[in-house]
Amino acid sequence: MTTLTAARAMSYGRLTAVRRHPLLAVLAVLVLVFQVTTGSFLDAGNLRGIATDAATLAIVAVPLALLVISGYLDLSVGSTLALGGLVAGWLAGEQHQSPVVAVLGALAVGAAVGAVNGVLCCYLGLSAFIVTLGMLTAVRGLAQQVFPLPLSGFGAGFAWLGGSRIAGVDAPVVIAALVLVAGASFLAFTPAGRHVFAIGVNREAAHLSGIAVRRAPFALFVVTGVAAALAGAIKASVLDSAVAGTSGAGFELTVLTAVLLGGVALSGGSGSVFGVLLGVLFLGSLQNGLTLLNVPAFWQQMAQGVALVAGAALAFLGPRTTR
C-alpha cells in the first residue's frame, strides 16, 4: 500500500510550471511562430494592443474563474458588459455626470445583475447554467429596451478610463493587473480562497465541515457582475460608443474559453489565476497574430474553437493537477 501511494505521490509531486500549465509552452510557440511569420508581432506597439484587448477579458475572466472553481458558472457576462457600458456612457454623455459617477453607476448595475444570479443559484439552488443563460437573454433585452439607439460622445473625461496611461501603462491594463493580483492573493492567502475550492469539490462535505457554502459563491456572482460592467465601461470609453444590440455579443463564450483554456475545470474545484492569465494571453495573441496575418475573421473564430477543444484534450491527456 505504502509503495503504491508512493508511486502515486511521485506523479503528484512538484510539477514544473510548464507541466502544471502546458499552455505556457503552447503560448511560447505561438508567439515565436507569429514573430517569425509577421516580423512585427513583438513590436512594442503591437504588444500594447494585445495587452489592451486582453485587459477587458482578464478583468472578467478572473472572477469568472473563481466562480467556476466554486462549482458555478456565469453565462450572462456578455449582456452585463453591454448594459454596463451603456449605463456608464449614458451617465457620462447624456447626463453629463462625472466619469467617477458614470463608472460607479455601471458597477451598481453589474452588481445588481450578479446579485440576481447569486440569489437564484446559491440561495434558491437553481441551475447556474439555466439561470445565467436566461439572464444573458433577459439583460440583453433590457439593454435594448432602455437604450434602443446607439450611444456615443461620452466626453473627454470619460475617455480617461480607457485611454489614459499610468506610469506608461494603459489604464485598462493596470486595472487588469490589479484584478489578477487580487484574484491570485484571494486564492492563495485567504481562508475564503481555500473554502472556494472546497465548495467546488464537494459542496455537501464543505457544508458539513461548517463552511458557509452560499456566501462565497454569492459574493463571486456579484463580483463577476461588477467586473463585467467595469469591462463594459472600459470598452465604451475606448470606443466612445456603446450599442445595446452588439456590445459584448459572444463575449461570455470568449471569456469562458479563456478560463477553460487556463486549466480551470468546468466541474469545479480546480484552477489557478496564473492559468487564467495564460488563457487570456493565448486568446489575445491568437486573435492579434491571425489579424496581422490577414486571416479572415471566420477562420479566427474557428481557430479559437479548435484551440479550446485541443486544450481540453491536452488537459485530459496531460498530468492531472490540483490547486
Binding site: 472546497a198 464537494n202 455537501e204 462535505a205 465541515s209 474545484g269
Partner: peptide, 13 residues
C-alpha cells in the same frame, strides 16, 4: 465520499 472528502484537495486542506 459524498459527505466528507475533498478528493482532489491536499491532505492538509
Amino acid at each position: 465520499r459524498a459527505q466528507a472528502l475533498f478528493p482532489v484537495l491536499s491532505a492538509q486542506d
